[in-house]
Design a protein around this nucleic acid. Structure first.
Length: 326
DNA sequence: ATTCTGCGGGCCGTTCTCCA
DNA sequence: TGGAGAACGGCCCGCAGAAT
């Protein structure tokens, strides 16, 4: 069994065209002994557009004029196909779905048959291992974590770094790469017939499901509170809070019973409640709150737009009716 | 009969971080 | 250029049934 790690650099990437200029790969055996490591330089048949965007972008560690001397993608297609589709090998990449997409686009551009192979994504694997699903781990970040030397955006070196990261992950869990994939329930991505889908992990899928459930529930809570606020139109009993427009920190809003009770107290005294912080002149924060909304409220106080900020405790002491709450 | 309330849904945006 | 995700933020409507 051989492992093939690959990475691709493009001269330009647009919506429906990505012109590949380097196909870098690193083939190793099951003990991560490197069998072959190579950069295939390819004439992209197009200009380089990687740094046009406001000074940002990437600079490839190659002399761009060099590329014109090499054959184009069509010429290298059989070799790349053999590398990725050959028998008895596993294909890996860091955020491989991007590279797979570029391969797909180039086969279309040059009217070549679609690639057909399976691949696993080491970035997904890392996320599953470390259970950090809330942000992607960049290749550079991972090389720092595992102390791997490499030249960024040098395709063969990126492929090598990807391999070393896989090796380190195996070392950490003291198992082989296929065992690691199994352990973290990594499913292979696949390209076939110009259609491709990503490598995935069960844990990440579970996480995503959980997140979407939480998001839905938060949304439901907010919606309930929103609707209550919009629909609550009782006549005030006093003018104590006349001209005051309150907003609460999010965590208070999400505690429906509490938020509802407080809004009733405000309205009873002639005040108003708004979900929108801008336009308010009073704010109630939860002790120890460090949310975006709370910080925005403090900023508004500095600007003189908000005059009163209460903690929940202060507000309760001032306005909450002990008896006859409901 | 009118008002209040609960519950169901929907829409939009910004900013950040990945990838070449 | 130009996607894909993710976190976070703001805004509204319609309807039915309960409450008064």
């Amino acid at each position: 069994m051989e492992y093939v790690f690959f990475d691709i650099e493009c001269a330009c990437v647009y919506k429906n065209v990505a012109k590949i200029c380097v196909f870098g790969y690193c083939v190793c055996d099951e003990q991560f002994h490197i069998l072959k490591k190579e950069d295939i330089l390819i004439n992209p048949n197009g200009k380089f557009h990687l740094t046009d965007r406001g000074g940002e972008g990437i600079v490839l560690p190659y002399d761009y004029d060099e590329f014109k001397k090499y054959p184009d993608f069509k010429a290298f297609y059989p070799k790349i196909k053999q590398l990725l589709e050959g028998e008895d090998k596993l294909v890996f990449g860091h955020a491989a779905i991007n590279d797979v997409k570029y391969l797909c686009l180039e086969t279309r551009r040059y009217k070549l048959p679609s690639f057909t192979f399976r691949f696993a994504d080491t970035q997904i694997l890392y996320m599953a291992m470390t259970e950090t699903y809330d942000r992607q781990a960049g290749l550079e970040a991972l090389t720092q974590i595992f102390e791997i030397d490499y030249t960024p955006h040098c395709a063969a070196d990126d492929a090598y770094a990807t391999m070393r990261i896989a090796q380190e992950m195996c070392g950490r869990d003291k198992c082989t790469l296929p065992e690691l994939l199994k352990k973290y329930s990594i499913r292979f991505g696949k390209i076939e017939n110009y259609q491709f889908n990503n490598s995935s992990s069960n844990r990440r899928n579970e996480y995503l499901r959980e997140k979407s459930r939480e998001k839905r529930e938060r949304g439901e809570k907010r919606a309930r509170f929103n609707d209550f606020v919009y629909g609550y139109r009782v006549r005030p009993q006093s003018q104590e809070l006349r001209g005051k427009r309150f907003s609460f920190s999010r965590s208070i809003e999400e505690e429906f019973a509490l938020a509802k009770r407080l809004v009733k107290e405000i309205v009873k005294r002639g005040g108003k409640y708004s979900l929108k912080l801008s336009g308010c002149n009073a704010f109630v924060e939860r002790e120890g709150d460090d949310s975006v909304r709370r910080n925005a409220a403090y900023k508004m106080r500095d600007e003189g737009k908000i005059t009163d900020i209460y903690t929940l405790g202060e507000f309760e002491r001032l306005y909450a009716t002990q008896e006859n709450d409901e």
